[in-house]
Simulated assay, not measured.
Amino acid sequence: MELECTILQHLRPGVRLDAWTILASMQISDRPAFVRHDKSISLDEIIAIEPVKRIRPFKRPLAAWAKKIPKYRRQAKETFGDVIPLVFFCPINHTDSHYTLLEINERERVIRHYDSLADRGAVNQTRMSRLVQEEFGALKFSYQEAPTSQLPCLRVCC
Rank of each mutant, 00 (worst) to 15 (best):
F80E: 08
P61N: 01
L117T: 08
R60K: 14
C157K: 10
L86Q: 06
I46M: 09
A19S: 14
H10W: 04
Y99C: 05
N93W: 03
L154N: 00
C157E: 12
Q9M: 15
M128Q: 06
K77V: 02
I7C: 09
A138I: 02
Y99D: 03
H113S: 03
A76D: 10
E145Y: 04
A63G: 00
L102C: 02
K140D: 07
L8C: 03
E134L: 01
G81A: 06
Q9V: 06
T126H: 01
L117A: 09
G121I: 01
F89Q: 09
K59V: 12
A66L: 01
P85V: 01
E78Y: 01
R60L: 14
M1E: 11
S142I: 02
S142L: 01
L117I: 04
S129E: 04
R109W: 12
I84P: 08
L11E: 14
A24N: 09
L139V: 00
R54V: 12
K71Q: 11
F34R: 13
E50C: 13
V52Y: 09
I41G: 07
L62I: 04
I111V: 09
M26E: 05
L139Y: 12
W20Y: 15
K59L: 13
A24S: 14
T79W: 14
R60D: 14
P13N: 13
I55P: 04
I22G: 05
V123W: 02
V110C: 08
L8Q: 02
G121L: 11
R155N: 03
S97L: 11
D44L: 03
R155I: 04
W65D: 08
K67M: 11
A118G: 00
A64C: 13
R60Q: 14
R120K: 15
S129F: 00
F88D: 06
G81Y: 01
R54N: 15
K59T: 10
S29R: 00
P32Y: 11
P152Q: 05
M128E: 08
G137L: 06
L8W: 05
C153D: 11
I92T: 05
Q75D: 09
S42P: 00
L139M: 10
A66N: 04
S149C: 07
K140R: 11
N124I: 02
D30S: 14
R31M: 15
L62D: 09
A118M: 02
L86I: 02
A24H: 15
C153N: 07
N93S: 02
I92N: 00
F58N: 05
S142Q: 09
V15Q: 12
R112N: 06
Y143E: 08
L117W: 00
Q133D: 11
T6K: 13
Q9N: 15
A76S: 15
D82Y: 13
S149N: 09
Y72L: 04
A64L: 11
I49A: 06
R73C: 09
A146T: 11
D18A: 07
R60H: 15
L151E: 06
E50M: 13
P51D: 07
P13K: 12
S40D: 05
I28K: 14
Y114P: 00
I41E: 00
P85E: 08
A76L: 08
Y143W: 04
R73Y: 00
D18K: 05
F88Q: 08
C5N: 13
P32I: 14
L101E: 03
K53T: 13
L17D: 10
K140W: 03
E108D: 05
D44K: 11
R112P: 03
R127S: 06
T100K: 09
S42T: 03
E134T: 06
